[in-house]
Every structure is written in C-alpha cells, then in structure tokens.
Design a protein around this nucleic acid. Structure first.
Lengths: 190, 190, 190, 190
DNA sequence: GATGAATGAGTGTTCATTCAT
DNA sequence: CATGAATGAACACTCATTCAT
C-alpha cells in the first residue's frame, strides 16, 4: 500500500487534524475525514488499515514533526541550560504555529487510543533531549529527580502556555515567554 | 408517583466516569452508560436533558468535588506559602485518590464539550484560591505574571504527577512530593 | 372513569386538536398532548383507554359538534332547497369558525384510524340531513343518484372552500359563498 | 464501484405507498419501508436525504404520474367542454387504477409535510389544464369564479368518487360516471 | 489504485404505557 | 383522582467497513 500518491496520505492527515479540531474526536467519522481530504472513504483504506491506524499514524506524524522542529541541528556541545533554553523556545514557537496539530495530539493523548502507540517509538524521537537532561543531572546542574517530574515542570507548562492563545484571549509577548522559561528553569535547576 | 431517586443520578455519574476511563469518551454510548448504571437508557433522560447534559454535569460535579476537597475549611489568615502548600498537597492527594474522576475531567477538558461549560461557574468554585494568589502578588511574594502562567507551573504539574501513577509504573514517595511542591514554589515565587 | 373533572377531558380534546394542527398527527405524542393540556401523561389514561381512544373520541366529538351546529333546530317542514341552503351556510360558517377542529378531522379521516370509528354512529349524527335528501329525491327535486355522489358535490366542496381560508390567501365574500351554493345546487338538482 | 440502481429507488417508492396505505403515515417507519423494499435502512439514505425527502419525493412522483396520465397528448384545439370531459374521465380512470398512490397523496396532502413541497412545481405539472379553464372563462362557457372554487366542484368530486371504491362497497357503473361528470359540468358551466 | 454503493450494527433519543405513591 | 418516575421497544439516522467495478 501507499505506493502511489503521497499527497493523499498527507491530505488525510490534514483532514483528520482539521476535523478533530473543529468537531471533536467522537464526531470525526471516516466518511467526513475522507470527504474533507477529497477522496472516497474506500480510498482511505488503501492508505490505512482502519480508522484506528489513521488516528495513531496522525499522532505519530505530529510527534515526529515536533521532535524534528525542536531538536533538529541541536548542538549538544553547548551548555545544558542553553540547549534547554533553545529547545524550550523552539517548542513554544512550534506549538504556537501548529496549534491544530497540538490540540489533536492533546485529545489523542487523553484518550484510550494513547495505549495503542508504541511509547518507545515516541521516546526515540526525543532521545537527544533525554540525553541532555541526563547530562545536566550528572553535572549537578539539574535536580536529580525522575524524568517525569522534570518534564512536568519543564515542558508541560510550555504546551499549556503556547496553547492558551487558542483557548483564551490572553496574548503573551516575548518578555512573558522569557519569564516563563525562567520559571521552568528555576523549577528544575539545582 | 415514585420519587426521583438521587442514587440513580449518582450511579449515572459513576458509570459515566468508569466507562470513559475504560473505553474512552467516543466509545461511551448512552446505552452503555445506562447499562453500567443499571437503568434503562430512557431513564437517563429523566435525570439529564441529553447526553451532552450528562457529560457536562459530570464534569461540573467533579470540579466542585475537587474544589471542596482542596479549599474547604481554608484558613486565609495563614501565610501565602503555607496556604498554597496546603492546597497543593490536598490537590495531589485528592487526584491520587480520584484518578478516574480526574482522567474523565482531562478528557472532557480536551474535547469540544469544554466550550459548553460556563467557565465562570468553575472559576467560582476556586475563588478563594484566586484570592490567595492575588494576595501573594500584592505582598511581593509571588511573581507578578498572568494567573494562567502561574497556574501552568503551580497546578498543572500536580495533576500530571498525581496522574502518573495511573499511566506509568512510577510511584512517588512523600519526599518526591515535597520536592515537587518545592519546584512549583521555586517557579512562581519572587 | 371520567367521574370527576370534565374540564380535563375537554382540555385533552383541545390539546389534541391544537397539537395535531401545529405539528401533525405523527409528531403529536401522548406526552406532548398531556403537557399541552396541563395534566400528567398518566392522567390521560384515566380519561381514555389509550392514545387511539383519545384520537377517535376527539374525532367523534368534533363530528357531533358539527352535526349540532348544522342541524340543530332544523325545520323539516320547509322546502328541500331552503333546508339544504340553510345547512350549507351553517356548515360553511361552522367550518370557517372551527378550522382547527376541521383540519384535525380531515387528517384523521385520511388515516387508517378512520376504520376504527363506528361509521353508523357518525351517520346517526346526520340522520335528519339524510332524511331531507331522501325527500328531495322522492319529490323529483334532486337527482336520483347514490347518496355518496350527491355528498361529493354538495358538501365536499363546502369543506374545501371553507378551509381554503386557512391554506391559501384567497378570501371569499358573501357573494362568492352564495355562488358556491348555487354551484352545489345546480349539480344535484334535477 | 457499483452503479446506483434505479430499481431500488422505485422499490422504495412502492414500499412507501404500500405501507402508508396499509398501516398509515405515522406508523410507516424507515425500517419498515426499507424492509418492504428489500434493502437495508442505511441504503435508503443513499437514495434519499432523509425520511422527509423520501415522503416528499414519493408525493411529487405520484403527482407527476397523474399529470402525465391525465394531460398527455391533450388536444387544446378541441372545445373546452370536450377537453374537460376527457380530462375528467382520464382522472377518474387513473385514480381508480392507482388507488394506493392516490390515497398516499391524500394522506400526504393532509399532513404538515404538505408545506414542504414547492407548490409551483406541482402547479407546473397541471399548467395545460389551468390554461383550458382560463379559456373557458374567457369564452363565457365557464362561470367566472376563482379557480379554487371551480376545482372544488370539478375535480374534488372525481377524487372522492374514484376513491369510494376502496373505502366502501359502492361500485359505480359507466352511466354513474357520466352522470357525475354532468353534475360537475352543471356546477361550473355558465 | 480508486471509487460510490451497500450494509449490519450501532448511535442518541422519544415512544406509549404502567407503576408506586 | 392524580402524578412523575420508569421502561422496553421503537424511532430516524450514522457508523466503520467491504464489495463490485
């Protein structure tokens, strides 16, 4: 499968994201997604095994895009704080520019579908980031607490803030963003 | 005539939460929820206008329970940090003990249904907390940044951490919890 | 049953007629009818055996009202034409003033429920009219054709015309009405 | 892909008419109609937007069939009376042979669905008939009264009579039919 | 490879009716 | 007498998926 037309697969990803954002997970039927993508429902089954496969694949594509945008060309020789600062800003920017994708990922991650994705695969996308944090801990720059805790302070707030713009009226200027990183850093630094 | 049975409404709340946790938002049909609650689907419509009303009411009930558990009997004369420490721990404990409810709320908040709840109503539940933070800002104890940012660092991590226990194997001991609060406090304190 | 409150039975008749006119036969549920009448659905079953009984009884009540309005105080000693003229005008007036009732009767008569009414009962209401026509035939004033054919020309047009006012914009003045009777009479007279 | 099957649409029309005649408008559910037509309820929605569309389309098809049967090959150069006589007989014959269709149309016209059909569309089917009557009025052959009144005397009785055969035992012979037309004509002629 | 037709199973919701009070 | 609660069955309609072309 998927021998022929990569544009159709991409169109299906975009249609999925758009519809889930507009009408929600539950109401996004295969027929509507196919229609939005400009193909027949039957065609969808050439590119994906079933609806579940479509949803999971869309999630993985979003996560991979995010990892590339955030980690690509990373200079691992820089100081830990500079690297994390850089990643933090790129993550904020990427989410701000791809709110629909991000909101899809949030809905997906807060659903039982989440259990269907190979967690190791997603972790693999972000391996360089994990390595940097490990180094920070070894260099006594970052608190020696479980990775989950650090992530909860370091990245979860980014997502919440970057996404605010979609949900509420609040608009963050570049100073707010710097402050926010400072809060994150204050939280995890030793 | 028979009298309306409060136990049935409660059973419907619990069935909703249970099913959404087990099979997800989208797959939780009215028929399944009613079945789980031990009533006829038609009976559900005596207690709730429609499915949407059931889902929204369930969400609001969870939020009100949370606010009571976290804020009830609050001593507003104490120092700001102590109050927030207290709230933080109570929130952690409450979420840990009510993971299903919390996960329901998360799925709900990440769905289009969220727009249907009167945001002011939920904010009202947590008014005392907002007052305390206001006071902290006035007393130059807490950074003077928008409430959304503070919440992103102060409470979002709590939820993530308390909920970890359900998703992964990691178990936090009381020391980890204290450290986590310290991170939150470091993040928002001046 | 129906020992107590005749007003409730009447209210149920009126509610039935009103609702059937507004939302149609199919959409007029027992619950809505009871609500419109200001009683509980259960109360309805005190006054009527079931929904079918309610609908049939409503129809019969309308027909009896019509026969009274049209035939009451009839002077059978007058000439046949004068009597029919009188009946024709009273029928036109009665339908014009009770369009909702009439439209209910039309919907009812054009439904399979019609078969449930004792046709002899309705015929009984209009016995004097049938007698007059019989006399007209005997006196060689009216064509000697089956009663059904005469009725089709004599009264069906009345109903159509009187009801026009509800359906279309056309408004008939008293001259039109006289002409219409003349048409009817021309049709059946010898 | 499979090609859309005209036979299925026709089967759905026939099933609708048959069921409405047997069990009435209100009781004719989509499931029963589909079953009678030998297709899945879901298939019905490929051929019609919804139940309303099915009912309205069935009505329009019946009306168009009727107009063709009654007006096709009409010779408008003949005398007015001859044309109307011809139409009258064809209408009587057509209704007699298609009682089920006619009864469906009657039930439909006496329901709130009626308001959903584009009245101009139906009027269009019968334009030649309207032209003939107009001519009769201009030539002082027919009384100069509103079209609605003429129709009430000219065609409503036809329908009533042709339909009698279904409702009652009375059977009209060809002489009765001629007499009936004579009544109609006597009613409207000058 | 691509499609619209086709469907059994399911959706949320309302139904006529009965029951306990 | 009168009622709102309760329900199994049915409602109109949509679903994810497959099939024939």
């Amino acid at each position: 499968m998927r021998i022929k037309d990569d544009k159709k697969q991409e169109a299906l990803f975009l249609a999925t994201i758009k519809l889930v954002n507009e009408i929600g997970f539950a109401a996004s039927s295969v027929a509507k997604i196919a229609g939005e993508a400009g193909v027949s429902p039957a065609t969808l089954y050439i590119y994906f095994r079933n609806k579940e496969d479509l949803l999971v694949s869309t999630y993985l594509a979003i996560k991979r895009d995010m990892s590339v945008a955030v980690l690509d060309g990373l200079d691992e020789t820089q100081p830990v704080r500079d690297i994390l600062h850089n990643i933090w800003l790129r993550m904020f920017a990427h989410i701000s520019l791809n709110k629909a994708e991000f909101r899809y990922a949030e809905q997906f991650a807060n659903s039982p579908f989440k259990q269907l994705v190979n967690i190791q695969e997603v972790h693999g996308y972000f391996a360089p980031l994990i390595r940097v944090i490990q180094r920070g801990i070894e260099q006594k720059i970052i608190k020696d607490v479980p990775f989950e805790i650090l992530a909860a302070f370091m990245f979860h707030p980014v997502m919440t803030l970057a996404n605010q713009k979609v949900c509420t009226d609040i608009e963050l200027d570049s100073q707010d963003i710097e402050i926010s990183f400072q809060l994150s850093w204050d939280a995890i630094k030793l």
